[in-house]
Design a protein around this nucleic acid. Sequence first.
DNA 1: GCCGTTTTCGGCCCGACTGTTTTCAGTCG
Length: 572
Amino acid sequence: MKNTQIARVFQDIADLLEIKAEDKFKIRAYDRAARTIEHLPKEIEIMLAEGESLRDIPGVGDAIEKKITELVSTGKLEYFEKLKADSPSGITELLDIPGIGPKTAQVLTSQLGIQSIDDLEAAIKSGEVAELSHIGEKKAEAILHGIEALRRKDKRIPIGDVFPIIEDILGTLRTIPGVKNLTAAGSVRRFSETVGDIDLMGTADNPETVLKAFVALPQVKEILVQGPTKASVILAGGLQADLRIVEHDSYGSLIQYFTGSKQHNILLRQYALKKGLSLSEYGITDVNTGIIEKFATEEGFYVRLGLQYIQPEIREGQREIEMAERKALPRLISREDIRGDFHVHTDWSDGNESLKAMVLSAQKMGYTYLAITDHSAGLGIAHGLNEDRLKKQMQEIRKLNEQSPGIHVFSGVEVDIKADGSLDLPDKILAQLDIVIAAIHSAINQDTETITRRMIRAIESPHVDIIAHPTCRLIGEREPSAIDMEAVFQAAARHHKILEINCAPSRLDLKDTHVFRARELGVMIALGTDSHRSEQFNYMRFGVNVARRGWCQAKDVLNTRSLNDVFAYLKR
DNA sequence: GCCGTTTTCGGCCCGACTGTTTTCAGTCG
């Protein structure tokens, strides 16, 4: 059983307890455990198999450890089954509707016998719901609205798609006099791989005028809430956008608060309370004196708490606060550390630009090296290279290297890993290349055992340097393959092979938790943009962000090494 | 249910907005 499934069960438990109006701190404990498990870098299954204690997971104590163990070993949890049996059927379905919480759900099921969203819709239309105490016409109307929103709610969208939307909105708002510091916070700033809504924030002389302009934007289809400091709207594409504006001198605490994650903020506030400090978006309040201290910068905010500055990408409520307290946070890799790109296509296979054009663009990026890795012939659609054409390309690259002294071009290939794990090109040609990337592109639906064995066979090939986009997922479009990633990490570590973070926003593969775990095992990471046009070189920033979410330092990523070091590393 | 350089018992994050209320509960992030 995967961590995401375990997390789901504990989230459901928290919801059911909330409906039963159980102790709210008990509810919070289950909720916290669910969130932590969801973001855990290591599969609990593996931890248990290795005899590792679950008590080291923050928020997991005696009771929850026992429940997890039962769930993983038997596939069922007695406590959860009983809880479900005791609760009105369909009640958790109602909680998915925006605007319905545990109290409302409880009233709807107990007083009207509602068991599904369809039941609820009918009851609202018949007027029954509006007659309940504490629910009136407007509330019933709002719930109906929530049902519609739920039904048309699009999936979370890949983070690469939200930046243009955000720039569009902020560009307009920036023209308002007296507004400053407009920026995206929330999951966008933490660089979560998908985004459910966009959180925007800023400071202004007069917050209300900015909010009025925001809800009046042509992109806004519908206004959900609007007050003097915050507003929520639905944009034309169906995406929700929230804007929060405070006065200028609270910028540091506002952006901290609005960046989240929620779990990080809860833990940070708990930590602060122990020091007698209460945190909010307006600043830090001394509990004893009631005096509030304001912060112009986020750095100042963390420093005041006695912490190292915590980068947004690692604010997921794992161990970042205790490490910041010990001043033990790593210096995360940054875009400036990157000296080259290891995954690039040209019009020799399915790329759109010539070899020369791609090299020139890479030079403009300030890179000192670049690997050209066109597809191998097995990929019919990709106009892949056979042995002869690959040899010709190697000659071209050799000439290019003589002509352009500013940048070194590695001759490489992205060789297809065939269904049985063999490679699509003979060893003797692979041996002549500077760098060999291997990747799965077909028969992605093989079962776990088959596809894992297939991948490990490729890792064991003495010619393979890097495994590209290891899970083959396409965000929002194609689920990752059934591959056993822990086994892949172990094999990569054993054979000193490099794993790629594919930087294309539709892939981001490896993902953050995978990177964390692979790095922990000592696996070298390489960033590859998989560029098919030179403008896609800019995807590098996405890959860097994923590496940061995996707590990578410069030393963990091959792209930060000097040309000589890369040569040496590939030669080993 | 979890947790502890103030505690193994007694705490547990903080504020905005809405609607149904005569002072606040519910929901959300």
